[in-house]
Design a protein around this nucleic acid. Structure first.
Lengths: 193, 193
DNA sequence: ATAAGAAAACTAATGACTTTTGATTTTATA
DNA sequence: TATAAAATCAAAAGTCATTAGTTTTCTTAT
């Protein structure tokens, strides 16, 4: 059985696995090529250098994050949906710390795929917030708070900054619930019966 | 007038300025030596290599962060103190993003100075939380939430992730106030009159 | 089936940065 | 003036991304 030839997707996926294990700072061409069983220059057949690989990884990661959050919101609304998205968001960061870091890394070139994925995520959250009937500025504040808590908790958790042997899931659930409760109550769903 | 000779403190301070401008990832020996007007090997007279410099910077940063938070809490208590500490914490991160990153960077060697500074900060926060009369586990949850919000908001803000032209200070104040309000009310200070 | 063309992989090499060492010289201090 | 500290030169040993030119390999069309 002949070995599968390398493709651009395989390169990005190999990079994704690598940064999740060794951190985003460890993203260099050598380990990616080795993982794929090819030499470094061959990577240039699929990706236009290291910067382009970082950019591709960022877009790939942001899209994956959005899709998981979107999936978590299916069949839920209001506070339920917010909590489910928060949990999906956090678990993505914990399971993919390197990819998530790539997502946040400043881009040397405009990155439409990354921008689009981030926009999609924001639109998803704004849609969930509709029943809360917030004013424009309040919506922004609430959104920033939501991202801050999820991002902050998950990155601190992942870095090992939370030393104590107290359950992380309980902490996150408690904090998130307290925050969501502080948002004005949504009107209940309209019954069609 | 003869040039001041380099000392260990000057090295750490030069490194601090450098990472705040160019990011923690850009911490290498070359720019530090150049900034001090000496050659790279001369740095080894003051610091035992790059790892040791990173470690010194982390300790220096964590201590500075603790001192600013401690200072912010003087003359305040309860929710007031929490809000003031949060603002001091956030402004430290915004003004010193590189140093703060050094603080969070995993240490290759045990770093007693860093551990001590972090412990001091935790003890300060726990002391502020006393009047809230929280149980042991609840105290941990509240503390984790506090750090998550401040760290998350400030790092996202600093990375430019908050695009909209809505005032950051208002957002932070709003979020923090909502969170602090969600903690059980502290009993008011006992009057000695 | 085979020849042509394209895509992928390779070898070789360059140039720029890294950190770190050892031995030596300069400089300040006691 | 003697001693210790600081700064220096020189060099090693490594990693890094990237380019150019060449060979292999697959695919496609005749």
């Amino acid at each position: 059985m002949a070995k599968q030839r390398v493709t651009r997707t395989l390169v990005v996926e190999a990079a994704a696995r690598h940064v999740n294990t060794y951190g985003f700072a460890a993203l260099t061409l050598a380990p990616i090529a080795a993982k794929l069983g090819i030499k470094i220059p061959s990577l240039y057949n699929h990706v236009d250098g290291l910067d382009a690989l970082q950019a591709a990884l960022a877009g790939y990661g942001a899209q994956a994050l959005f899709l998981r959050c979107q999936d978590a919101a299916i069949g839920r609304g209001g506070a339920d949906a917010l909590l489910a998205i928060a949990e999906a968001y956090r678990s993505f960061i914990i399971l993919n710390p390197g990819i998530y870091a790539a997502t946040l890394h400043p881009q040397s070139q405009p990155n439409p795929e990354l921008v689009q994925a981030n926009r999609s995520l924001m639109e998803l959250l704004e849609r969930i917030l509709i029943p809360f009937e917030l004013s424009g500025a309040d919506r922004t504040h609430v959104l920033r708070g939501f991202r801050s808590i999820v991002h902050g908790f998950a990155t601190l958790e992942e870095s090992g900054a939370f030393g104590l042997p107290i359950d992380m899931n309980v902490s996150f659930q408690t904090i998130m619930t307290a925050y969501i409760t502080s948002i004005n109550k949504p009107r209940r769903a309209v019954s069609l019966l």
